[in-house]
Design a protein around this nucleic acid. Structure first.
Lengths: 165, 165
DNA sequence: GTAAGTGCAAAGTGTTTGCATTTCC
DNA sequence: GGAAATGCAAACACTTTGCACTTAC
């Protein structure tokens, strides 16, 4: 339940959803775009533009940054991707499949591991808080927890065994 | 209790704290730095570099961005300022006086009004959550609520009466 | 054929840094 | 006089845009 990768069935569904969006908006299908969308959908977790481009270029070496940015904008606009900022300077994107609705993040400050979670009680308290502060109606929120995962906490420093490539 | 401005007494205390920090680190006192620190301490709320520089330049017209950035870094390092990112691209700074410790933010998406709040129950639930997700030890967190303040919610759209210059 | 998409390089952000010059102690 | 600070402009990292060329339909 941590950083779920999208199931094949779900990927198909999302791809179809994008095709509909594309048709509705008069977008053409190109090999570059298809490669990016495909690669994005099968990425699990929180992909950066660099990550994504690197993977895409294995298949289609000439794809440029601009195309990736433009495609991610389309995916975001169509609700298939969500852009996230975790303070490391670069935007990361996650797949917004069904059964992957709203959630918050827990990030290991040592190894960069990102877990996702949901907590209804917290959400409810947020609504109450906003109301108590003068009748605000919340439209969204951002909750990020930064901590040490148990493995990182056990290390002297620097290296974290949860680290992955 | 919302976006408090710092009391004169507190400002004096903070200025002294910075002087100590400066002495300890072999920093020299310059008119530019003094002007920036002074202006920052009397700013209430969440100042951007641009805001701050604009105000500083009324007194000392030749101050450059670099100096403001460098000074804000000193203030942050000395614990007198805290840097915040509210997703509008620019870093904002707030004064970290006594009686102005940890807190979270509630932001009106219409008029940009920023309120501060604290909620121990939420904090506690966060710790529990982190522990439950595999024994994480939290070192910090970020909670931002985005909503409509009641005045903004009442308007048709666009203009918000809470807006201030 | 023409609208849409691509790649590149240039332009835009906000921020940091190198360096010659000035300032403080 | 020498370390530290300044201002400027250049460098940065990330992202967006302009434009000539290519591609899909």
């Amino acid at each position: 339940m941590a950083t779920p990768s999208t199931s094949p069935a779900e990927i198909t569904k999302l791809r179809t959803r994008f095709e509909e969006y594309a048709r509705k908006h008069g977008l053409k299908s190109t090999s570059q775009r298809d490669a990016i969308v495909d690669q994005f959908l099968r990425s699990s977790g929180h992909v950066s533009i660099d990550d994504l481009l690197a993977k895409v270029r294995k298949r289609a070496p000439k794809v440029g940054y601009a195309t990736v940015y433009r495609t991610m904008k389309l995916l975001t606009d169509s609700g298939i991707a969500a852009a996230r900022q975790f303070g490391d300077g670069q935007t990361r994107y996650e797949v917004m499949g069904e059964g992957h609705g709203h959630h918050d993040h827990l990030i290991c400050v040592q190894c960069g591991l990102i877990l996702e979670f949901e907590n209804d009680t917290i959400e409810q308290l947020q609504d109450e808080m906003a109301d108590r502060l003068g009748g605000f109606k919340l439209v969204r929120h951002k909750l990020e927890l930064y901590g040490l995962c148990p493995k990182a906490a056990g290390q002297k420093n620097g290296y974290c065994p949860n680290e992955s490539s």
